[in-house]
């Protein structure tokens, strides 16, 4: 699944370069949003979905339990 997420992120970055819409205003989504804006709003929504997949399937194992090393915690230092 990690590879799928990497491919999806790469696709997002590729889709971000919407050169095909460079010189276009229409179609106007909902009658007021030019295509160049609509496409990128869609990319924002797609980004949230891709990162949700990343969080679900690719969460790093070494950060699940993290304990401070002895003496490292700042709370053991003097008060202000």
């Amino acid at each position: 699944m990690k590879r799928v997420v990497i491919v999806l992120v790469a696709l997002l970055l590729a889709a971000h370069q919407d050169y095909w819409a460079w010189d276009r205003i229409e179609p106007l989504a909902f009658g007021f949003m030019p295509i160049g804006l609509t496409w990128h709003v869609g990319i924002s929504i797609a980004a949230a979905i891709v990162w949700a997949l990343a969080v679900h399937y690719c969460w790093p194992a070494d950060v699940v339990v993290v304990a401070p090393l002895p003496g490292a915690a700042r709370s053991e230092r003097p008060e202000l």
């Binding site: 992120v9 997002l12 970055l13 971000h16 919407d18 030019p34 160049g36 804006l37 496409w39 990128h40 709003v41 990319i43 924002s44 980004a47 949230a48 990162w51 990343a54 969080v55 790093p60 950060v63």
Partner: peptide, 25 residues
């Protein structure tokens, strides 16, 4: 409107990536 793609949708992809691969570590 190009400013949205330049900064906003780019940030949506890249900021979240930075939180994930840099922030957590």
């Amino acid at each position: 409107i190009g400013v949205y793609g330049m900064m906003a949708s780019a940030s949506g992809i890249v900021h979240a990536m930075c939180f994930f691969i840099v922030g957590v570590k």
